[in-house]
C-alpha cells in the first residue's frame, strides 16, 4: 500500500545511503472486516445454456461446478455444452443473423445496445459481487473498474452502430456473420463486453463461451440481454471447458478467440484455428474495438 505518486524516495535513498528507516505498516489501527453484503444476490443453483433466446439444459445432461476461489464454496452447477449444443447455438445465431440482426438498421441496433448498457449500470452492484465471488478478484476491482468499463463499452459501441456508414472513408462496413467468441477468466464480464458490443454494433451475431472457471457474470449478462428483448439468437452463451471451445471453433469455422491462458486449451483449439484460417483474420475484426473497418466491400471484392 505504499504506492507513490512521485518517484522520489529512491533518489533520496541513493543520495544518502544508510539514512533510510523503514516505515512501519503494522497493526496499530486495523480496519474491521467490511465484506460486501451478498444477501441480495441470488445465484441459481443450476445454470443452463442460453441458446436462441431460451435457457436450455445441455443435451448431454452434464454439469460442472463453479466455485468461489476465496472460500472454495460451490456457487452453482453450470451446464456443459457439447458439440451438439454448440451447433444449436451457431444455428440459432445464424438464423438471427439472417432474419433479424443483419436486416435491422444501425439505429435500431444501437437502441438495443444502449438498453444493455443501462441495464449493466442498473445491476452494477449485483454484477460486481458475482464477479468477485466467481473470479476471486477484489470487490474494489470489479466494482470500480470491470463493471463500469463493461457498461462504458456497450455505450461506446452503441454510439457507433448507426455511424458505420460514415466511419471509414470510402468504405462501407458490413457484418460478417456469426462471431464465435471464447474469453478467458481474468476479466470475465469486461472481456464479454469487449467482444459482444462491437460484434453486435456491426450487425454480427454472437456465440460466446466464457471460461469454465468464471461463467457466472456472462450468464448474468445473458439475463440482461434477455430482459433487453434482443431478438432470440443474437447472443448465445454456451458454457463449458476446452472441448466446448474447440467445438465452437470447429463449428463456426470462424474463431475469434482471445488468447486462452492455458496451454492445453490452446492446443485443443489449434487444429480448428488452422482449418479456419481462411476466415479467421476477417472474422476477428468485428470484435476488435480498433477503428479499422470490420469488413469492406473493397476488400471483399479483391
Amino acid at each position: 500500500m505504499t504506492l507513490s505518486t512521485t518517484n522520489n524516495g529512491a533518489d533520496l535513498e541513493a543520495a544518502n545511503p544508510g539514512a533510510t528507516d523503514a516505515l512501519d505498516f503494522g497493526t496499530a489501527w486495523t480496519y474491521s472486516p467490511a465484506p460486501e453484503a451478498r444477501d441480495h444476490v441470488k445465484i441459481a443453483p443450476r445454470q443452463e445454456l442460453f441458446i436462441g433466446g431460451e435457457w436450455r439444459a445441455p443435451r448431454s445432461g452434464r454439469y460442472f461446478e463453479s466455485i468461489s476461489p476465496s472460500s472454495e464454496e460451490k456457487l452453482a452447477d453450470i451446464a456443459e455444452a457439447d458439440a451438439a449444443d454448440v451447433d444449436d447455438a451457431v444455428a440459432a445465431a445464424r438464423h438471427a443473423y439472417e432474419h433479424h440482426w443483419r436486416p435491422m438498421s444501425g439505429a435500431d441496433r444501437s437502441k438495443y445496445l444502449f438498453r444493455i448498457a443501462r441495464a449493466i449500470q442498473e445491476k452494477a452492484r449485483e454484477l460486481a459481487i458475482v464477479e468477485s465471488l466467481d473470479g476471486g478478484k477484489p470487490i474494489k476491482e470489479s466494482r470500480d473498474v470491470d463493471v463500469p468499463l463493461a457498461a462504458a463499452h456497450f455505450f461506446y459501441h452503441a454510439g457507433w452502430a448507426d455511424k458505420l456508414r460514415y466511419a471509414f472513408q470510402g468504405r462501407v462496413a458490413e457484418p460478417l456473420g456469426v462471431a464465435a467468441q471464447i474469453i478467458p477468466w481474468n476479466f470475465p464480464l469486461l472481456m464479454a463486453a469487449w467482444k459482444i458490443a462491437p460484434a453486435l454494433a456491426c450487425g454480427n451475431t454472437v456465440v460466446l463461451k466464457p471460461a469454465e472457471t468464471t461463467p457466472l457474470t456472462a450468464l448474468l449478462l445473458a439475463r440482461i440481454i434477455e430482459e433487453a428483448e434482443l431478438p432470440p439468437g443474437v447472443v448465445n452463451i454456451v458454457t463449458g471447458a476446452g472441448e466446448t471451445g474447440a467445438a465452437l471453433a470447429e463449428s463456426t469455422r470462424s474463431p475469434s478467440p482471445e488468447a486462452p491462458r492455458s496451454a492445453s486449451a490452446s492446443r485443443r483449439m489449434s487444429p480448428a484455428r488452422a482449418s479456419a484460417s481462411r476466415w479467421s483474420s476477417a472474422a476477428r475484426r468485428p470484435t476488435s474495438s480498433s477503428p479499422t473497418p470490420p469488413s469492406t466491400r473493397r476488400s471483399r471484392g479483391s
Binding site: 507513490s4 524516495g9 544518502n16 516505515l23
Partner: peptide
C-alpha cells in the same frame, strides 16, 4: 505526507 515520507527516508 509524501514530502514528509521522503524526508523521513532521507534523514530519519
Amino acid at each position: 505526507l509524501e514530502a514528509i515520507r521522503d524526508h523521513f527516508y532521507a534523514t530519519g
